[in-house]
């Protein structure tokens, strides 16, 4: 069973990496991340240069915070903003099954539908993790360039690793949620639209203002609650523990529904 799952996962990974759209979107995300990193490099370097003797930094006008905390948060937050686009990769990967009868071919190759669903989740999760690690590495490189004269060890400190792991968890789990939604909807477009709608719920702050408890249940809000550090200018709708539960629950539930749908529906 484990060998069959490994073979099916390798095959699914083969499908992912041989799809040009996947590389185009991933490349665009990584390229945009590099561009934004370059654009912010001077400002961040300048802010670091002006860190006060008591270790405070003013990254945004009027907001003075402990430099170490603010820069670790910046490390994860710069990756976090980029991985808003990663679910598109997951949607494209899931949606390919419903083009040109690909799902039929997949089921001819792996007719045990539970096994196929498991292999898909592992393969997509693995690919999302790979792209997320690239994004995290780029963030680390830019943060290092900004702070190398102040504290070059910060990007590999325990706090930095913790922040990176939180980002990676969010990136993979949110991507898997979109993947599962796309599998349920059997459409890349619908998968992306649902994800955009969930993103708008967080970005518009409507839920955060009126019902913070509900806001905390939205994946992007949970990601924000997990990765960012609250201060006077930023109020979060829940703590990191709650956020992690939300982030794990979304893909678990969505994947369970997607797997059930895959098992029960005809492959059309």
């Amino acid at each position: 069973m484990v060998r069959d799952l490994a073979a099916a996962t390798r095959a699914e990974l083969g499908k992912v990496v041989t799809l040009r759209a996947v590389w185009l979107i991933s490349g665009a995300v990584v390229g945009l991340h590099v561009l934004l990193g370059l654009q912010n490099l001077d400002a961040e370097t300048e802010a670091v240069r002006e860190i006060t003797a008591d270790g405070m930094i003013e990254r945004f006008p009027g907001i003075v915070r402990p430099a170490r905390e603010a820069l670790v948060e910046y490390l994860a937050a710069s990756s976090f903003q980029m991985c808003l686009f990663l679910p598109c990769v997951a949607a494209v990967v899931a949606g390919q099954e419903f083009r040109a009868g690909q799902l039929g071919t997949s089921l001819l190759a792996v007719p045990r539908r539970g096994l196929l669903a498991g292999a898909k989740v592992l393969a997509v999760g693995g690919f999302l993790l790979f792209v997320s690690i690239v994004i995290a590495a780029i963030s680390t490189a830019f943060v290092y360039l900004s702070i190398k004269d102040w504290n070059p060890g910060l990007p590999v400190s325990a706090e930095a690793w913790t922040a990176q792991v939180k980002f990676l968890a969010y990136a993979v789990l949110s991507g898997l949620t979109t993947f599962a939604i796309t599998m349920i909807a059997r459409s890349t477009l619908i998968g992306i639209l649902v994800t955009v709608a969930l993103t708008v719920l967080t970005m518009s702050q409507i839920l955060a203002v009126f019902t913070p408890a509900l806001d905390a249940l939205v994946p992007l809000s949970a990601g924000r609650n997990l990765i960012l550090v609250p201060d006077e200018s930023l109020r979060l709708s829940a703590g990191p523990g709650h956020a992690m539960v939300v982030l794990v629950t979304w893909p678990l539930l969505a994947t369970a529904v997607a797997a059930t749908a895959l098992c029960r529906r005809d492959a059309r």
Binding site: E12, K15, T18, L19, G101, G104, T105
Partner: peptide, 27 residues
Amino acid sequence: GALLDGAGPVPERRGVDHLAWIAQSNR
């Protein structure tokens, strides 16, 4: 071995890649 109408490859994938993933799935 089966050839079915409505169970085909994704058009953007190369022929060799299509066969490669199918082969991998069945070792």
